[in-house]
Design a protein around this nucleic acid. Structure first.
Lengths: 78, 78
DNA sequence: GTGTAGACTACGGTCGACA
DNA sequence: TTGTCGACCGTAGTCTACA
């Protein structure tokens, strides 16, 4: 778990947070709808978690984006 | 871990296998270069594993594709 | 070259409480 | 509303061995 890895996970966390705020959800709401715990959602957004694919997919569904989008750099023109 | 989940993971496994064969690597070679065990790579390709993001990224690097591409449906025109 | 099986360790993910 | 801490449990991921 080097710096590079952390940056990658932090990027994913940032995508999640952006989408969550855009939908005006709390971490607890997102967690509830995704079937994941509130504290877990928070730690993902902070880039502290090496999320597994199925959990990423659960989040992506609630956020209404394809799972792959949570792994890609944000479009500068967005 | 319902059928839908399995299909999703199987899809990821298929992308990995396609890329690996395209690069003419064995599972053992891919595992070695990615820093993952041979038997683990095999189980991922069979869709049996809920891979974590950092492991997906390790595989993507050796396969020379962005991690997100391993989560997307194959382009029919590819 | 790949699949399977078992045993093992590390960490993904849950949960309750308090700031 | 979010972050943090600690205890807990299931599984991601390693490794050896055999078909």
């Amino acid at each position: 778990m080097n710096r590079d890895d952390k940056q990658f996970l932090q990027g994913v966390g940032d995508r999640v947070r952006e989408r969550r705020l855009a939908l005006k959800l709390t971490q607890a709401e997102l967690g509830k709808r995704a079937g994941l715990h509130r504290t877990f959602v928070g730690s993902v957004e902070r880039g502290e978690r090496n999320v597994a694919l199925l959990s990423l997919r659960k989040l992506a569904r609630v956020l209404r984006v394809p799972p792959a989008e949570l792994l890609t750099e944000p479009d500068p023109g967005a």
